[in-house]
Structures are given as C-alpha cells and as structure tokens.
Nucleic acid binder design. Structure first.
Length: 442
DNA sequence: TCTGGGGTCCTAGGACCC
DNA sequence: TCTGGGGTCCTAGGACCC
C-alpha cells in the first residue's frame, strides 16, 4: 500500500492527526468492589479488605491496606485463607447487585461534569472536555475528586490528557503516587514527558505481558522510550494496535469517545461449579440455565444469534484426574432469540461433546454472530413455529421482570443444582433489595 | 475441598465467488 | 509454453481490557 501522506502505512492516522485536539478525562474508582463493601461497614474504612470472584475463587479487589500485605490480584483464595484470618483481613464474596447499583450512581454523578461520558467499565469512565478552556481543567478535576466520594461514598482518581491513552496513563500516576493526591493532568509537553518517564511499558493501557516482554527485550522500558521508538518496528512487532498506542502517547488521537453502548457481538454465560459434576443430567441443567440467561440478555438488546458454542472442561488444576476439554459449534438453521430453541440447540451441542466418566468443573454457552432484529432475514424454509416460541419467551420475560428473576424457567434448567455458587461471605444487597436496606436508629 | 467471568480487536489462512 | 486475481466471509488463535 502506497499513500502520499508521510504516515506511509498508517493513512488512518494521517486522517486523525489533522482533526481538532481534544481533552479527555479518565475517572477511576479506587478499589471499587472493596469501596462498595466498606460503604455499609464504616468500621472497615481503614482496615484491609478483599473481595473474591465468583465461587469465592480468587482475589479480584483489594483495599490499599490489603495490597500492603502483599496480596496479589487473582490469587487463589484457598491458599490465603489462613493468612486472611491471621491478619484480620475482611473477606467478601462478590455482590454484583450492589456494585452495579453503586456504579450507576457514580456514572450519573459524572454526567454532571461533561455532556460526553463513555462508561468504560463498571468502575471507570472517560469524559470528553474538548472545548473546555485549558485553565479550567485543574478546578474541574478537583471538583470531581471531591464530589464523587461526597455524593456516592466511592473514592476516585482523576487523570486528564490530550488522548484517551494519556488520560489513562495520567490516572495511573494519580492513583499510584501519593504525591499527586489523586489527580494528574497532562496539559503541556513538560507534564507529558514527566508522566511518560515515570510509567513502565507494562503499565501502559493496551500493553500486556506479551508486548511488554517484546519491548523490554529491545531495551524499551518506559512509556517515554516507547513513544520515541521506531514506528515501523512497532507496527511490525506489535501490530497496528501497538502503533496506535504509540501515537496516542505522542498526543495524536487515534481513539475517540464512545458514548452509546454498541450492541454486543457475542454473549456468553459460563461458570465453574462449586463441586465437580460427572452426570450428563447435571451438565444439562447447567447448560440449559446458562443458555436461558444468555437468551434473555440477547432479547434485551433485541438481537438474534446465528451460531451457538458450547464448551465443557474438567478441573485443569487437578493433575491426578483425567483431563478433557471440548467446545463445539452449533450452526443454526435460522437466526433465533427465544429461550426454548436456544436451549434445545445448546443441549444438542452438549450431547456431542459430553464424555461419560469424567469430573467436570466448568461449562459455558456462547451466542455468536449476533445480528440486530432489523437485519433479520426470514428463511423461506423456516419450519419452526417462530411465533409461538417467541411469544412464550416474551411471556417468561414479563413474568420474571414482575415476580423476580428465574421465577419461570424451563424444566430442564432445574435439573440438579449443579452449578450453584459458593458465596460464604456475601454482603446484603443494601441498595437493591427492600429487606436488605440498612435501618438507621435515631 | 478450594484457582473468575465477560468482552473486544487484529491477523493469517482457507473457502468461495466472479 | 502458458495455469489469474481481487473481494468477501469465516474461523482460529493470540493479544488485550476490566
């Protein structure tokens, strides 16, 4: 490919560089899940706290105090059980109903600071500040830093910069270095250089362990060196993804704000079982339940799936047991969205891969090739009663919305409680369940 | 006994079409 | 002797994110 631009093989970059320079903010909640739990347990405010993943499997959130104990992200909880007890570290099972609700409150507060908010994940958002006078940014950052904890109880860090990657990097510094007191703003060449020199390549947004290893192997260790490195080398070894990151670190915008959440292209539901399962019936119960949940999410975004994947595998951490893992693709004759058909095809897939006599630890269902309703093509030879099955799903959704999740489900999804989660330290749903709302005594 | 879950994007290669 | 080539779609695998 040959172009006239001096950007050679990156014409898309040439197109972007001449657009107006923006300003982005990244607001990130500190130890989000731990902060949510502490909100209703004020006595824990200065105590070490950790939150565990589904099934109480591994550590997924740590308070500052817990990090100081050397507890790592992703550590298996059972290895640390005694350590937690010995050091008086409070442990919570994850409570997504609570975190989701508090996340909505934080995002709502953030929308008061900018008309352009990209909710990037449950605990962070990008804000657009293009057109805001540069000298107002420090005051805005300070207001966000104070207002969010005041109004929601959740502490945050604030980063700002001319690209999303720089805002993210600024946020990283704001959070990691106490001297910045939760705020870092890149608004000059000096502040950009100072920031890049303090961040190692592995901590750049988009650089994972594999890319970091490649960079370190050629002597590139921090973000400043990466930004200055040869772009052809980067393009070749880190693909266009790496090249975009390098440009963004040089204040050249390659990624813009996404303020409407796009429809998902795949929807997956998968769980590890709290204890291993060996019967086909138990796996059928799990797969039917996962397929039902996935189908419900599919209908929520008004999508239709064209292809279902089903997978199962044994416990990979048990070298003493026979290992087996398999996934299968079930192409669908017509696109579909109703629970009854999706469960039927998912179970068909399971029967193809199920092997007798093994101890299964995990299963999952993935709906793939999702298209929007408006794109739907009717198949001339469609011999299903689409109308009937879709009406049943619609009725199930209505009943469940009114009387509670999973009040109505397919019989097969009730087969044995194969996949029930272990949640030994679950907090109440303080904000989303009437019975769990805290009572204040005056 | 016990090791999470849900996504996206990029690339290379094959199938298929005209 | 000479045995196309471009476009699109799909998949698998790898890398990344939270």
């Amino acid at each position: 490919m040959k172009t006239n631009s001096s950007f050679g093989v990156w014409p898309h970059v040439a197109a972007i560089i001449y657009s107006e320079g923006g300003v982005f903010g990244l607001v990130d909640c500190n130890s989000f899940y731990c902060s949510c739990e502490r909100l209703f347990r004020p006595e824990l405010r200065t105590r070490p706290v950790v939150v565990l993943s589904n099934n109480d499997g591994c550590v997924i959130s740590r308070s500052k105090e817990a990090k100081e104990f050397g507890i790592q992200m992703g550590e298996p909880a059972f290895l640390r059980k005694d350590f937690f007890a010995a050091n008086n570290i409070t442990v919570f099972s994850s409570n997504y109903a609570l975190y989701g609700d508090l996340s909505r409150r934080v995002m709502n507060e953030l929308s008061h600071f900018s008309p352009d908010v990209e909710v990037y994940s449950i605990d962070e958002a990008f804000l657009g500040f293009s057109g805001f006078p540069k000298d107002t940014l420090p005051a805005i950052a300070k207001r966000i830093y104070k207002k969010i904890p005041k109004n929601t109880g959740i502490p945050v860090s604030v980063g700002m910069g001319p690209t999303k990657t720089l805002a993210k990097l600024a946020n990283h510094l704001a959070k990691k270095k106490d001297e910045y007191r939760g705020i870092y703003i890149i608004d000059s060449e000096e502040s950009r250089e100072a920031a890049l020199k303090q961040v190692s390549v592995a901590d750049i947004w988009g650089i994972g362990p594999a890319y970091a290893r490649k960079l370190e192997a050629v002597g590139i260790t921090n973000a400043w060196e990466f930004a200055k490195a040869n772009k052809h080398w980067i393009r070749k070894h880190l693909t266009v993804v790496g090249a975009r990151i390098a440009y963004e670190l040089n204040s050249i915008e390659c990624s813009s704000l996404v303020t409407v959440d796009p429809a998902k292209k795949t929807i997956s539901v998968a769980r590890s079982f709290s204890s291993m399962k060996d019967t086909r019936e138990a796996l059928e119960g799990a797969v039917a339940t996962f397929a039902s949940a996935a189908a419900y999410n599919l209908r929520k975004q008004k999508g239709y799936t064209n292809l279902i994947r089903v997978f199962v595998h044994t416990n990979q951490h048990r070298s003493d047991l026979e290992q087996y893992g398999c996934n299968t693709i079930v192409p669908l004759p017509v696109q579909m969205q109703d629970t009854i058909k999706i469960v039927r095809y998912a179970l068909h897939g399971l029967r193809k891969i199920y092997k007798r006599g093994l101890q299964y630890k995990k299963a999952g269902v993935i709906l793939d090739q999702i298209r929007l309703e408006s794109d739907q093509q009717n198949d001339l030879f469609d011999n299903f009663n689409r109308d009937r099955d879709e009406k049943i799903s619609e009725a199930m959704d209505k009943i469940n919305a009114r009387y509670g999740k999973s009040k109505v489900k397919l019989a097969v999804a009730s087969k044995q409680n194969a996949w029930s989660l272990r949640q030994e330290n679950l907090s109440p749903r303080y904000t989303t369940r009437w019975q769990d709302i805290p009572i204040v005594l005056s």
